[in-house]
Design a protein around this nucleic acid. Structure first.
Lengths: 357, 357
DNA sequence: GGGCGAAACTTGAACGATCAAACCTTGTTT
DNA sequence: AAACAAGGTTTGATCGTTCAAGTTTCGCCC
């Protein structure tokens, strides 16, 4: 029982040189059809697979990309990044790329890890999630010309002139759509349950504060034709991203006259929904969450769904044009903003009538 | 500006041979103290890091382990595997190991991926989660002598004679502890809300059915000294792992006289808890969940917490003795069963009194 | 003082692939 | 008919490391 086949061993069997086998794999047009055929047959029969380490040593390409795992915060919103990682891995795998994950505590450590991974494992690039304004990570990567794509906008004044590629979901469109839907249902006093504004309160939110502002603006834009600014003011509340706080915030909004609520996250929405149903069993305000997490689906709550699978697909597409595309082609950074989708559900919650056994 | 330092370039600067530098890194005892000192200084000053591809090509070790990402099911229990992956990655990184993740649809595809990853990326081993009885994956890995450790027992008749190493959490002990706690609180008729039994209903549960049986047995063992078998029978219900089903199951248990409920998952517990609180606002039965997911923490529900970080630590320890330990030492498989911890919370749920603004 | 052995270090080869350049064949051009 | 071009194939070198087998130095012992 021999060890695994190599280019040289295959070449020996076929009476050709290693380079011919190599060409058959990497540049088939250089090999004559009959030879190509024979080589391909042997490759299939022998189950040959090129050794990545050897290839990497020579080409300085690892076909391996890095992704940072985020620490699970106390929210329920991690589920969405889970789905993203899953889709990302799957899509990249299809194109022969592997994903190396790493976990670090903060941005500084993340940059250090980039350096380490680039130098030892020679990763070909990174997928960076959860970008913030003036993100030190993207500047670092850009400075050294490391290929990367972000899931998240740079949130700079002009996102379109951003020098790197990004894919993101348009939260504004999502909350606007939810608000419009509630308007068609006859609601006018629609509340927004979001996160606190101001940078110093960053801890209270799952990510940068720009995200929350974006989501709030969609609600505001959809509702402002129908309400006075003073009323709008009353109908917006910002609280830390926890279920408990969502419950409290919902009561405030209800007191201010809200008959329906659009939320910045499912955590808030879940708190709001359960609280309102408990406090006002007969006619509790409608609640729409954000992210369409499993919990929302489970309790039958409407929510705005981010197309993370599509985001992953776009990210991979862009990454491939950067890494596999023609070398000397100028690669203009791509910016893709995907619309979320409103998922309507009947309401759910505790069962009205105990089922008979 | 030169490219990155290599063994040869460092050797040139110091007037020694490459091998001496290599020895200083991998076998310091072979190098004389003064030379060692000089080499180490230069390494630090130059920021030299060994190239992994070259090292791998020669040693056939990649310092890279594989881990399969699970498809996010519709439950809320993925959070725990998230934490596990995070801890695992962190611990392995500390010891110079990287984690390559992959996502596949089923067991066959998983085995194919093992093969692919072993041959091309030459992974050193795998961490296998969520094992079942007669798991085809572990047999495959064992047959080819691939190093691996599982998070999860083999669930065979005799776990202790299992030929591979595993780490798991003792669900039985967890539910027993929860039941005991409820007994000390004066409860006698304590219900168990679990999953359906029988292999054909596998879809209804997050994983193999052995897990659910294990958790149920802890409750049964703790309670059987206090109740007749017939009563026990009435106090146990098995439903699919969804919030909605948990709500229904809880009502059944309540009808059968349960004053407290121990659950096989937080999904079920959440449904039970919310339902009971809605249906019996004044004196709703106590509910204890399983897995201590973020949702449980958020709604203030008691739950049995799996020490996944500790599991990850043990898994890494075992993996290191396999991979880095003395080569010709006989490695008896290790089996570690960790106890979960009961996390008590006040109850939470909707706020009784609307807070003043 | 010759032989021996250990310690410290060096040298050549190998891992398995790709790059760059050389080498044959053919067939076409002048 | 000699020169040239292009297509197909081979050869030698190289990526950066470690293994295995050398070499040198020096002290020790009989």
């Amino acid at each position: 029982m021999g060890s695994r086949p190599t280019l040289a061993s295959l070449a020996g069997q076929l009476g050709v040189s290693r380079q011919t086998i190599s060409n058959a794999i990497n540049a088939p047009e250089r090999v004559s059809p009959p030879t190509l055929e024979r080589v391909r047959e042997l490759i299939a029969a022998s189950g040959y697979r090129p050794n990545n380490a050897a290839r990497q040593l020579r080409t300085r390409r690892s076909r391996n990309l890095g992704y940072r795992l985020f620490p699970s915060p106390d929210g329920i919103n991690t589920a969405i990044m889970d789905r993203f990682l899953h889709a990302l891995t799957e899509r990249l795998y299809e194109h022969g790329y592997r994903v190396t994950v790493f976990a670090v505590a903060n941005d500084d450590a993340e940059i250090e890890a980039y350096e380490e991974l680039l130098e030892t494992a020679e990763l070909d690039g990174f997928i960076v999630a959860d970008t913030r304004q003036d993100d030190p990570r993207t500047s670092w990567l850009m400075d050294r010309g490391v290929p990367f794509v972000t899931f998240g906008r740079p949130w700079a004044a002009d996102n379109d002139s951003c020098p790197h590629s990004w894919v993101d979901v348009d939260g504004r469109v999502g909350t606007a759509e939810a608000t419009h839907y509630l308007l068609t249902q006859g609601h006018r006093r629609i509340g927004f349950l979001g996160w606190p504004e101001g940078k110093d309160l960053a801890r209270a939110r799952p990510t940068g504060y720009e995200l929350g502002r974006d989501r709030k603006e969609g609600w505001k834009a959809a509702l402002s034709p129908h309400l006075e600014p003073a009323e709008l003011e009353l109908l917006s509340v910002g609280v830390p991203d926890r279920i408990r706080e969502g419950a409290a915030g919902a009561l405030t909004l209800h007191r201010n006259g809200a008959t329906a609520i659009v939320c910045a996250s499912d955590s808030l929405a879940l708190g709001a929904s359960e609280q309102l149903r408990a406090t006002f069993p007969d006619k509790s305000p409608a609640v729409i969450g954000f992210d369409d997490t499993p919990v929302a689906a489970a309790v039958g709550m409407s929510s705005i769904s981010q197309p993370v699978e599509e985001v992953a697909e776009k990210v991979v597409e862009i990454m491939r044009t950067i890494l596999d595309g023609p070398a000397n082609q100028t690669k203009a950074p791509q910016h893709i903003l995907l619309p979320p989708r409103l998922v309507l559900r009947d309401g759910g919650g505790p069962l009205a009538n105990p089922p008979t056994p």
